[in-house]
Design a protein around this nucleic acid. Structure first.
Length: 797
DNA sequence: AGCACGCCGACT
DNA sequence: GTCGGCGTGCTC
């Protein structure tokens, strides 16, 4: 039998299957969807079996080296989905396959030198190295300058270069102990003063005869030595079993039941349940204001799906995968839920994946990549906060989880629910056209009022001499809450201008020497860092341009706001949440918990606090500068601003106490700020659609972005205009080609970047044309420009 | 992506 | 005459 294998080499020339003989001892093992190790040229690499067949048109087949899996890791549906994704996003097949599995399952490679002769016959230098490390890794050989000598050994047959495929995903093993005999018999046999040992036996007996090593030691107070003594005497049996790393160990989830749905909710859930019950594909857009109870609709839909013996995928944006959200799902569905998000370690993610793969759970709650959960019978796919841009993967394969969800739902005959208080224009337009079915939740639960939103014009503040980043109004309201012992959330949108460093005399902004971006200030090291290439240097004492000593940090980082808060309101207890304070695992949760317990009055943070946060005592939300993202070079700037302001405002007054929101801005007249104030999505939608139509942007036009990069500016520019020419000539007159222009970030890691944007409505020839362009320009060569194509881009930097 | 093969310049 | 630079092409 012969296997068609996609090898682990993301390159144009290897983007096809290679055939391998299945050796006899693996005939009954190897199936499609499994990973195998195959010889490829002189090395050994991992690959995915796409097909098993009788014959091959190639007649010098090599044999599969070994099988990595004993059951397929990708089922037929996921294999065909990877094919779809390869075509849709124009990525390599291997990238599409790889992205479906947790990172821990990606192979690692190593090369080692194995001596084939007596070590004593080797030169002294090599001898000593081999004595320290045998086999000797390529890496140590390289760092110690031994490569030349070793390669000589290889060529005269005294050593061999071996290629290894290593697995990262380790399965956690746990030691368990069992009673080997009846507990009373053992106790009788123990010597009278073996107090510890007797306790061990009693503990085990009380727990039914089997316990993990950790639990046994804890309950009996025994040490590993005691246990070993008992094993040696034959009273205990020691075994190793597979175990899961449990990220929620030691946490109790209170089980909760259904809530009674409001009339509004009942009306919305009915068509969804009808679709679930009739096993049909349909996409719903659930548009519900913040606090209208979308989650309860998700939960009851999932419940119905589980009753049918099917499974559910629920996607939430990375940043809102909060403990509160997990709590709600674990509370309702208990250990039927797997959770997948970036806060987990590689091993933990692997364990969660295995639970799904083995069918031990029926619900997965996770970020973008959870859309590839290896379920067999999906009954519903839910995408919460549908408008979030984190559902689009920014590197290859550049897929959008929403598109993948719809594609999977077609293969499973099940509904997709897209939920949001502020749907993306694309989705809402599709709902208007009838491609999606629009469901509305117009009322907040418990008849809460929408929070009262005030917009403060910061220009006015400045004119009246207030140079602080807090308007007098906001400050007064914060003080009021402090008095009443209520809580405040302050939101700072730092994107756009993070804290850059500038000379106040000549205006020079410190820039990365390799990238066309300004460096950001990191206080703990007194250093400046580049976001894009990682370049780091000390903050200069004097300006490199004019030697002035007046160097200042600009932009309002959360740290700066915190410092000002301390000055203005020394009595307030503040928790700051940003990348600096939440980078450690679990710290996000700890900070939120602390705030929930009322250990602080003010929660100050960036993006990450915009969502999910739901504490009863929050009665004031302040947005310090609403317009920082409004001026980004992005046609979605207004949409993002509106969404963000609406989301943030929704954090206030979700419970009995009424909420208030203060939005500070320098452009109060901008419609996305005005309409966020009244939380009027539909008006915003109408207005923004007019703008998009005029500017010929989505949802009226589709976009494709082609980005080229190379060290030589002239060369990128030339190739880019060549490509623009090809596009112009081959597309219909309705298509619009923008560019070539320099990318908004014109240089990254010393490579200049140019781009072209194609706007189009119906261009069946575009995909094949882009594919051709890819093939032509992705041809490797010393001086080749790098080409990148993003179909339906979200980031155009 | 690696890696081998092969063709030209700078040395023993 | 050989060593080694990197451009070219192949990997079942």
């Amino acid at each position: 039998m012969i296997a068609s294998v996609i090898v682990d080499v993301p390159a144009k020339q290897t983007d096809r299957t290679f055939d391998y003989l299945i050796p006899e001892h693996l005939e009954s093992v190897v199936q499609k969807g499994m990973r195998v190790v195959v010889p490829f040229g002189p090395r050994k690499i991992q690959g995915f079996v796409l097909d098993v067949k009788e014959s091959s048109s190639f007649d010098q087949l090599k044999k599969i080296e070994e099988a990595v899996d004993i059951v397929p890791v990708l089922n037929d549906e996921l294999l065909s989905l990877s094919d779809w994704m390869t075509k849709e996003t124009m990525c390599y097949r291997i990238s599409a396959l790889q992205v479906m599995l947790p990172a821990a399952m990606k192979a690692k490679y190593d090369k080692v030198f194995v001596p084939l002769t007596d070590l004593n016959s080797l030169p002294a230098a090599l001898q000593s190295h081999f004595q320290r490390e045998n086999p000797l890794s390529w890496k140590t050989a390289l760092t110690n300058g031994l490569l030349k000598d070793l390669q000589k050994l290889v060529s005269d047959g005294r050593s061999e270069l071996k290629y290894l495929v290593k697995r990262k995903g380790t399965i956690k093993k746990e030691r368990i102990f069992k009673l080997a005999q009846d507990s009373e018999a053992i106790i009788a046999a123990l010597s009278k003063n073996a107090e510890r040992q007797r306790k061990v036996i009693e503990s085990l007996h009380a727990e039914g005869g089997t316990m993990t090593s950790a639990a046994l030691q804890e309950s009996s107070g025994a040490t590993a030595a005691t246990l070993k003594a008992l094993v040696d005497k034959g009273y205990l049996l020691e075994e190793h079993v597979e175990a899961y790393r449990d990220p929620f160990e030691h946490r109790e989830f209170e089980r909760t039941g259904h809530f009674q749905l409001t009339d509004d909710q009942k009306q919305a859930i009915e068509p969804i349940l009808e679709t679930v019950n009739s096993y049909r594909q349909r996409t719903f857009l659930l548009h519900g204001v913040t606090g209208s109870g979308k989650t309860e609709i998700y939960l009851q839909t999932i419940d119905q799906v589980l009753k049918q013996g099917r499974q559910a995928i629920m996607l939430v944006p990375e940043i809102s995968l909060t403990p509160q959200m997990v709590q709600r799902f674990k509370g309702r569905f208990g250990d039927q839920v797997a959770v997948m998000h970036s806060g987990l370690s590689q091993g933990e993610k692997y364990d969660e994946w295995r639970k799904i793969h083995r069918g031990e759970v029926n619900v997965v709650v996770g970020a973008r990549s959870a859309i590839f959960a290896p379920f067999e019978k999906i009954g519903v796919i839910i995408i919460d906060e549908e408008h979030e841009t984190s559902y689009k993967q920014e590197d290859a394969p550049r897929y959008h989880a929403r598109d993948v969800a719809i594609e999977r739902s077609k293969r499973h005959d099940c509904p997709v629910i897209l939920g949001s208080a502020t749907p993306s224009l694309e989705s809402f337009a599709r709902a208007q056209k009838g491609n999606y079915e629009l469901l509305k939740l117009q009322y907040r639960m418990n008849q809460q009022e929408m929070p009262d939103v005030q917009v403060v014009d910061m220009r006015e503040e400045l004119r009246e001499g207030n140079r602080s980043m807090f308007s007098r109004e906001l400050l007064a309201k914060i003080e009021e809450r402090l008095e009443k012992k209520e809580q405040v959330v302050l939101f700072l949108n730092r994107r756009g201008h993070s804290s850059f460093i500038m000379c106040r005399d000549c205006g020079t902004v410190m820039q990365c020497p390799h990238c066309e971006v300004s460096l950001t200030y990191h206080r703990f090291k007194e250093s400046m860092k580049c976001h894009y290439c990682g370049h780091e240097e000390h903050v200069p004492e004097i300006c490199p341009e004019c030697t002035s000593e007046h160097i200042r940090y600009f932009g309002t980082g959360t740290q700066k706001v915190e410092e000002e808060l301390v000055k203005l309101l020394p009595q307030a207890r503040t928790i700051r949440m940003d990348v600096d304070t939440t980078s450690r695992k679990g710290s996000h949760e700890k900070l939120l918990d602390a705030f929930g317990r009322g250990e602080a009055d003010i929660l100050l943070g960036t993006q990450m606090i915009a969502k999910g946060l739901d504490f009863p005592n929050i009665t004031l939300v302040g947005v310090l500068s609403a317009d920082t993202m409004l001026h980004l070079p992005d046609f979605r700037a207004s949409e993002k601003t509106f969404q963000l302001l609406t989301q943030v405002s929704g954090r206030a007054g979700r419970h009995e106490k009424p909420g208030e929101v203060v939005i500070q801005t320098y452009t109060p007249e901008h419609f996305s700020i005005e309409l966020a104030k009244s939380q009027n999505f539909e008006w915003f939608y109408q207005k923004e659609m007019v703008m998009r139509k005029m500017a010929q942007y989505p949802p009226f036009y589709y976009l494709s972005l082609i980005t080229l990069s190379h060290e030589n500016v002239n060369k990128v520019a030339a190739v880019c205009s060549e490509i623009a020419g090809i596009l112009e000539r081959n597309l219909s007159v309705q298509a619009i080609v923008l560019g070539p222009v320099a990318s908004p970030i014109a240089r990254i890691q010393n490579k200049y970047r140019y781009q072209c944007i194609v706007k189009y409505k119906n261009e069946p020839e575009l995909k094949p044309l882009l594919k051709k362009i890819m093939d032509q320009y992705a041809t490797p060569g010393k001086d080749a420009v790098t080409i990148q194509i993003d179909v339906q881009p979200y980031m155009m930097m």
